[in-house]
């Protein structure tokens, strides 16, 4: 019983990290109506920026204090998000969903290639930013890094939810997500909305990379987290900020249970397959997810 609860606790903490990445999908979808498949690569770019301003700067003889490097990373990924929006997605405003989706696919291999050209393919270590260790709560051990990440995810969810439902800019983004043409005719700037969405999305993805990689190894393979978070975003509902962490916990716990109880029977495949089986099941049973906007037609 204690074992089971320990697995559930670990699964939900990891699930909240998935939820954080899923929020970065949702933020972009909610404002720009783009499912950006390259979100995992965006996260990797953020992580490499983080590496550049911590270990990379230290290697050049310019050791920076952690808060300064975090600020520089945040600034760097804002510039990066704005550059992606300006060069790839702004020229495509008003194009069919197929074109925009394919632009995301092209961005995926573009970013993967660029990262490899700029930083090289070797693995790197990210310094410890969030404290490592385990907290003893009763009979359970809780990883402090993931605990802080979980608290951050929940706080960010509340903040973004308020932003999207209460602030003027957030409501404008929601109007753009509903329909570009209608938003334009109401005087809402689609360009501004999409630029805001991209900057927010890259910042959230980079925050996720801090939680995920603090004190561990950074390689190009980290981008897989993007594909793991996609089922989470779909389950929570592509328009729902608050659905993402909840769906993250569901997927995380199921994955942890599968890896503990089913993997020994299936040669390690069950936990890997679970998010995608869940994704296909969600699309078949409840395509708008748990809290997404119900549309009669999804085009």
């Amino acid at each position: 019983m204690i074992d089971l609860l320990q697995i559930v606790i670990e699964g939900s903490l990891v699930g909240l990290v998935y939820g954080l990445v899923a929020i970065s999908f949702v933020v972009i979808y909610r404002a720009a109506k783009i499912i950006n498949l390259a979100q995992g690569e965006v996260l990797v770019v953020g992580a490499f920026l983080l590496w550049t301003f911590t270990e990379g700067a230290a290697g050049l003889g310019w050791p920076l204090p952690i808060p300064v490097s975090l600020l520089l990373t945040a600034a760097g990924c804002m510039v990066f998000g704005a550059a992606v929006e300006r060069s790839v997605f702004r020229p495509l405003i008003g194009q069919p969903a197929f074109t925009i989706f394919m632009a995301g696919v092209a961005l995926l291999i573009l970013l993967r290639g660029l990262v490899q050209l700029v930083w090289g393919a070797e693995t790197r270590s990210i310094p410890v930013i969030l404290p490592e260790g385990a907290l003893q709560i009763g009979p359970f051990l809780v990883n402090t890094r993931l605990l802080i990440g979980a608290a951050f995810t929940l706080a960010l969810t509340a903040a973004l939810h308020l932003f999207f439902t209460r602030s003027r800019l957030g409501l404008r983004l929601a109007a753009v997500a509903e329909d570009h043409t209608t938003a334009l005719s109401l005087g809402v700037s689609v360009r501004q909305a999409i630029a805001t969405a991209w900057v927010l999305g890259t910042v959230v993805a980079t925050a996720a990379s801090v939680v995920l990689l603090s004190g561990s190894i950074l390689s190009l393979e980290v981008a897989v987290i993007g594909f793991k978070a996609l089922p989470v975003a779909l389950l929570g509902g592509m328009e729902s900020i608050r659905g993402a962490p909840l769906a993250g916990v569901i997927i995380g716990v199921l994955e942890a249970l599968a890896s503990a109880y089913l993997d020994p029977l299936t040669n390690g495949a069950a936990s890997g397959l679970l998010p995608y089986v869940a994704m296909v099941a969600v699309l078949l049973i409840r395509p708008y997810g748990l809290f997404g906007w119900r549309r009669i037609e999804r085009l």
Binding site: M279, I285, P287
Partner: peptide, 11 residues
């Protein structure tokens, strides 16, 4: 049977 567009691409 249930979805269209890029939701289908996700499967």
């Amino acid at each position: 049977w249930r979805v269209k567009g890029f939701y289908l691409a996700l499967t």
